[in-house]
Amino acid sequence: MTARRQPPARRLPAPGPQLRPLVSTGTVSCPACSRRYVVERYAAAFNVCAGCGHHGAVPARQRITQLADHGSLELMRIEVGDRDPLRFDDGAPYPQRLARARERTGLSEAFLVARASIGQAPVLLACMDFGFLGGSLGSAAGEIFAQACEAAAVERRALVAVCTSGGARMQEGIASLAQMARCSAGVAAVGQARLPYLSVLGDPCFGGVTASFAAQADVILAEPGARIGFAGGRVIEQATHDRLPEGFQRAEFLLAHGMVDAVVARRHLPRTLATLLHMYMPA
């Protein structure tokens, strides 16, 4: 955290995992310290800034390849129809927003689900994509997660969920709230099958997602600096007019308050997950 507030000004770039010459397609800059990176090198470093350690956002597709053993991935296609129970229109009709999100992310919903192995342990990986309508939990996303849970229970796989979400999908109103129940039932099915459920909380993770499956895991890991909570900081400030304490709702704050089991740097996640899975799921 300290390093993050004061990015080192004149340090040579730390060697990334791959220092071979690259034919670049462009550059990106770290959202925290603005250090510039070649896109491929940033991706090779798991979207983590070598200078300040900031953990950048990771799209779901990239996330599953980061976590799964090489060559073990098998995407699960769960087809769920769209629902627009409220015929919602907040400047643009909801179906139009959905279509735009699909085009932008190449995903059908905010959840991407895959069968995979992590350190040879069979898992069902469910990753949320914050780029898809803020990773919000709508009926289709909830259904995908719930079906993934049921598949995990049937196929005797551990469940690993990566949660990055703003919470319930307002555009679906009460139908979205019902997904908290649907997803909790999914988690309960995994628990009844006595299979481990590990969740990884990324930045940000709020609302109905934290208040259901993200917090129901057997082991909860959080990424450094991730903002995690129920109500967002802006909402709290508006409601209570209190000044928020330093580092409020950051992963380290939650660790200190006993809400998460560990804060794990992104490059250590596969190893940490594998270690836990081996102990909880002896082959």
Binding site: M180, A181, S184, V187, A188, T210, A211, S212, F213, A214, A215, Q216, G229, F230, A231, V235, I236, A239, T240, D242, L244, P245, F248, Q249, H257, G258, M259
Partner: peptide, 19 residues
Amino acid sequence: AGIGAEERGQAWAIADSLL
């Protein structure tokens, strides 16, 4: 929605109640 509620795990309490 408040600082104390977040510090003491509002989301965790709700998630546990659901289960």
